[in-house]
Amino acid sequence: MEKTLNQKAWFLVLPVFLLVAFSAVIPLMTVVNYSLQDTFGNNKFFWAGLEWYTELLHSERLWSAFGRQIIFSAIILAIEVPLGVFVALNMPKKGVWASLSLVLMALPLLIPWNVVGTIWQIFGRVDIGLLGHTLAALGIDYNYTRDPLAAWVTIITMDVWHWTSLVALLSYAGLQSIPEAYYQAAKIDQASRWSVFWFIELPKMQGVLMIAILIRFMDSFMIYTEPFVVTGGGPGNATTFLSIDLVKMALGQFDLGPAAAFSLMYFLVVMLVSWVFYTVMTNLDKKAGY
């Protein structure tokens, strides 16, 4: 039998092509376009080549924001991951209290980011904030609008408050999947509490912990709303992280070219790190023989 050949079927994928084009490809290409040109307004553009990229790679402003960003992500990971695991280990395993603690743990995750920012912005104010006022009354010099250290402490505490739950909930899920027999065998083998954690619980949590670290890394690396609401990137540039700097550049100074180059490099860094994480994770899974 003769097969009918009909190329009209290609039209069926047209909606998807259009959707992807308008939602991803065209906006991305616009950014690429901006990053290679210069403008003095009036929608007149001049070809700039890779000039913005070289300029940014030598810009102290970008590198210091990048440094702050790395330090910020490192600190919050170093606090949230162990703390989250610790919380998960101490959550009740079943019964009413387990459900209750799950709900309580989930609460911070449900609060919109700018609201979290506002809560802490007010909480830390020296004139009316519960925390700021109390600390001032105790004679501790705390003012996040003047003191870079206080600003950092506030933002890190806020992030820990907001996101430790996520790590805890994921770890909790990992812990719950460990069969009871493992704990029983450990008892039979007279393993110490520490051995149980190190040889049973941690290896079994490895998978979910990697996911938690990946999510927390990406989120914290792109953090914008909360520090913007609390400190606006200040005092000075002390809490100006990459995305805050990017928005300043793009919308504050309207430097479209450098901002576009900036965001592309930013995008590449996040993708690169995520790729590394993904590779490490899949390798671990392979080793585990799943």
């Binding site: 069969p179 027999a181 065998a185 039979i188 040889f199 049973i200």
Partner: peptide, 12 residues
């Protein structure tokens, strides 16, 4: 000493 229905080994 006790052996369980499903193998319990210390993975790492």
């Amino acid at each position: 000493a006790q052996v369980f229905q499903f193998p319990v080994v210390y993975d790492i």
